[in-house]
Amino acid sequence: MSRLHDMGGRFGDGPVVPDAAAAPVFETDWHARALALTLACGALGQWNIDVWRHARERLSPKDYSRFSYYEKWTSALEDRLVDTGVLTREDLLGNRLGQGGDDLHVLASRALRADAVAAPLGKGGPASRDSDIAPHFVVGDAVRTRHPGGSALVDGGHTRLPDYAVGARGRIMLHHGAHVLPDSRAHGLGEAPEPLYAVAFKASQLWTHPEHPGDEVVLDLWQSYLQPDPNPEPDPNVEASA
């Protein structure tokens, strides 16, 4: 149903290994370089963050599992650069053979300069938008996530509804206003902003063997991922003394 990146709840990964207190921000120089290269290429304006996330998700399962974190970034970046026509396969191959051309690229005027780095990092890219779609839910409403899951717009496409929360029952906790719908923007289908909510799910709604019945997971979910739950469990915040 989903892809390897959608790993919430998966078994078999072993313990988390915390880093040392004095660990450097970047484990090696090339990690730092890969991150900076990605951000600088992003400034060329040829893709948005949803396209970028989907590019990483689209790595084959084999590559996704064998690549380290920044190898995934670098691979997805190469794929994006070629898919958008910024580079050609020949550019990549030519360089490998030591024959790179020196002609200036048509996008070179957009290259991020050192003295201009602070602006895009500081400006960010807010996802909030005005929307004509009225909120259907208020805080406290009982909802159920869409089932089956996956992208409703593109078969096998990008979505931010993780598999582990598909068909689960929860309650609206926060209304964040309207945000760009990644399922749409990742595929060039427009921003399609709609209401976004933080939805709280009891651990027992998500897991067959929850660690602790009182624990919760909260996910940010778009309105089109949700439907009203006609038969909700009692709201623990309303009937706390039950």
């Binding site: 919430g8 963050i49 807010p126 996802a127 931010r160 509804l161 993780p162 964040h176 945000h179 760009v180 990644p182 976004l196 933080a198 709280a200 602790h212 009182g214 624990d215 919760e216 997971v217 909260v218 996910l219 940010d220 979910l221 778009w222």
Partner: peptide, 11 residues
């Protein structure tokens, strides 16, 4: 109680 926030949007 533990509440885990899964950052699935731009929040």
């Amino acid at each position: 109680s533990v509440r885990v926030w899964d950052s699935t949007a731009e929040v």
